[in-house]
Simulated assay, not measured.
Amino acid sequence: MSSATEKNPVATKRVRLTREQRLNQLIDVAWRLVREEGTDALTLPRLAEEAAVAKPVVYDHFGTRNGLLAALYQDFDARQTVVMDAAIAASEPTLEATARTIASSYVDCVLTQGREIPGVLAALAGSPELETVKRAYQRVYIEKCRKVLSPFTDEKGIAAAGFWAMLGAADGLSNAAATGEITADEAERELYETIVAMVQRGGR
């Protein structure tokens, strides 16, 4: 008499993921670990256990815990870029609409990630190597903001210090909203006003 697995040999085969699919799976599991247990619980052996894969698979993708943290930040940044690009494309070409879109997309992205992103950012700040990675992505974000806000400024544009101040406000307000210190509406409104004021100081 045949067993169920003999009747259906496909059932005994594991689905083989592509490298990209495996990476996405590991990133999803890592975010869940951070969300449920905090950043301190995120180690490569623990990630392998939670993802039900061999440890060498995890080490092959990330190398070190710092590599994993960097990958989480890159994942967050990539999703933030997609959200912002789509929102900008759909917004009206006015300063008010553009500033509101930048503010809402930044806050929304942080809130979507919830409490885990502040922990990842704190861990990034503890490593000079990872701080360099973070700074590189921040510069890309600032350049994106400079480009979309340039139609509302004069030929001098906005000073670099203004953008770094804006980014600091965005991080602080979004993290405060994520931890419940302020509401999302308060964070978006304050960031919107910060952006408009920054543009008007150096604008037409």
Rank of each mutant, 00 (worst) to 15 (best):
S3M: 10
N24H: 13
E37V: 01
T194Y: 09
P56F: 03
K7C: 12
L44I: 09
T5R: 13
A54I: 04
T12I: 05
D85Q: 13
L149N: 10
A187C: 08
A187D: 03
S3Q: 07
T18G: 14
T132G: 04
A48S: 14
R204D: 12
T12G: 11
K7M: 15
V140Y: 09
V140M: 11
T94R: 15
D28P: 01
M84A: 12
Q25G: 02
I27D: 03
G114Q: 13
K144H: 13
V107C: 05
G126Q: 00
A89F: 06
Y73N: 11
G114T: 10
K55C: 01
L130Y: 01
L47I: 06
E193L: 10
G157V: 05
D85I: 01
F163D: 08
L191E: 07
L68W: 03
T94E: 07
S105E: 02
I195D: 00
C109P: 04
R46G: 08
E193N: 08
E92I: 01
C109S: 15
Y73W: 14
A123T: 01
L95W: 02
E37C: 04
A125V: 01
D171V: 02
L149G: 10
D40W: 03
G119K: 02
V15L: 13
T39Q: 06
A4T: 04
R139I: 15
E188V: 14
S174V: 03
E49Y: 11
A161M: 10
A78Y: 00
V10N: 12
Q74T: 14
L17A: 14
R46V: 15
R139Y: 13
A90N: 11
V107P: 03
R146T: 14
E186S: 07
G119N: 05
E37F: 06
V57D: 08
C109Y: 05
I142M: 13
A97S: 13
E193S: 09
I142D: 06
W31L: 15
S3L: 15
R32I: 09
